[in-house]
Design a protein around this nucleic acid. Sequence first.
DNA 1: AGCCTTTGACCAGCG
DNA 2: TCGCTGGTCAAAGGC
Length: 664
Amino acid sequence: MAGIDDNVAVIGDWVPPSPSPRAFFSAMVGDDINSRTIPESPGEKRNEGLYLGQPEQMTTGNSEKEDGAQTSGVQLTELGTFSEQKSNFRGGLVERIAARAGFNAPRLNTESIRSTESSMNPEIRSPYLTIPPGFSPTTLLESPVFLSNLAQPSPTTGKFSFFPNGNSTVGSDPPDKSKETFFDNIDSSSFAFKPMGESSSFFPWWNKQAIVSGIDVSVHSENAFQSHGVEPAKAQFESRNSLHFRAEFSKLTTEKDSGGFSVADQRTFDTVGGNAEHSSPLAEQQDEEGDQGASGDSMAAGGTPSEDGYNWRKYGQKQVKGSEYPRSYYKCTHPNCTVKKKVERSHEGHITEIIYKGAHNHPKPPLNRRSATGSMDTQLDTPEQAGPQVGAVNDSVWAGTQKGTAAGTPDWRNDNVEVSSSASGGLGPEFGNPYSSVQGQSGTPFESADAVDASSTFSNDEDDDRATHGSVGYDGEGEESESKRRKVETYATEMSGATRAIREPRVVVQTTSEHNHDVPAARNSNHVNSGTSNATPSQAGVAVQTHVHRPEASQVHNSMTSRFERPPAFGSFRQQPGPPAGFSFGMNQPGFANMGMAGLGPGQPRMPVMPMHPYLAQQRAVNEMGLMMPKGEAKVEPVTEANMSLSSNNPAVYHHIMSRLPQM
DNA sequence: AGCCTTTGACCAGCG
DNA sequence: TCGCTGGTCAAAGGC
């Protein structure tokens, strides 16, 4: 595949150049939502698109590349009408890009997704449709965080089987059924975390498939909290499931001279779980995660030079004003390759941003790089690279920015299925690179859940692209003066979320309090609430940067707080990609010790945190319910499916479990 | 020995 | 012209 540029291109395609988060959002989602779900005011219609009911393949990249894309497994989800429209849009853009760059953008294969959804029970969908009274989709749309959250359907959110009270039955019966069905359909019970509350319903797409390949999440949730009724009392426990969700996406932003620069985000989503295709990659990802963990996040992110499959030599590092973290400058070590990349990395080593300049005029080097350690390499190795990465069209220009972990692996696309799925080209480092992207688990749902991070970054990405890029897109690209290229920042949310998600497993436990007592005071409620909605992508007029870094588990707590509370700095909204974004119940509590996410264990150090949308803050009920942000890693014991099901179905089990839960 | 990272200094662009 | 900033150079050191 093409190198970075490709990614960029892809990214660009992915989202229409609209500054508006909404647009982005809608684009992401597709029309289905509109048709089906969310009743919105005209103005809001875009939001409706959230639901990706019928994913179609979007051609993100050149049709030409399709082969590769398919091979790679990169898949983009396209939705309904949106997809069509987008296709057109993209097609043109992509073609142009391809023409310039000489590379093809990977195509997202959404079919799997489609099938999934289609197969899904109507019931399942219903949740998406439902919007809680008083709740405006718009709100969700505006927040980057939100997107991500939404994107993540989780048991917690009730996305899964749990239907919002309003709509579907929450009752145990339905849950079970829905649960089963849901998972079955999905393949593996993969799911995406979603924010609590109805909002979750917005992104069915995420739930099902949205999960970006980069992220693997296995979650065992005890209950889905049904936020609808914000009323805690009504919260009900629903099925417990272990979900695996992996999402991988990367975001890539490109700067463009012309008029601006365009940022492209790319994300690829794998269909959740089930696909055999993806499954293996997941496994690899897991490995990678481990490796990465060992090696350090940075590496994984693609921050590392090699992570993206290319060899890089660091030639400078500097603290850039306005940037929290130092920026590292890398050059491609290939003889005649002028590609450079800038990587910003958090103190923890998490990559917050990656900007590529130029296109590789050579294939990726053979795997055995030392850095390549671990899974990353594996993925990278794919032959795909064979082709010249990119026609080095715009060498001079920093073509893309990736924020997120995966550093950019430009090639993400075809290499592996995973890659493709991960696609990240963009999202992050992790995203961007296949490598970077962490792959969670193998297809099997209940296997270990690796990282669950659902960061939700996705949504943002698109927005970012639009927002940031504005019109640019790749079209313009190119040529502009490098010197002036602005740095496009993408919404951190997206990236960050994605990134984190990939690596850090999170456990989200929602409990509803039927328990007989008043709702306990929320422990970390502040964080959530504190979240500043200011983050809205739209604001972006300002460039938004996405940070992909994954904070340490310990850091998560803080991160979240800081993230949301912190006003947009530098005029740009930065969201830190880390686990912080997420939320989860305090798994670390003794009571939860036994409730674990499969696959989570001591071995898995970090728990991904899902970004919370400000909306969540409103969901006070949630907090009250005992939802809390884990500061540390949650220790969870694996829960077998059987157990899960039992718990959901068996009152005795249910009580048993419940009894173990700490009383808030 | 080769490659890479680190890091201070230098250079260029911009206001 | 000066100061700021971002990007790059290149020596030193490590693996």
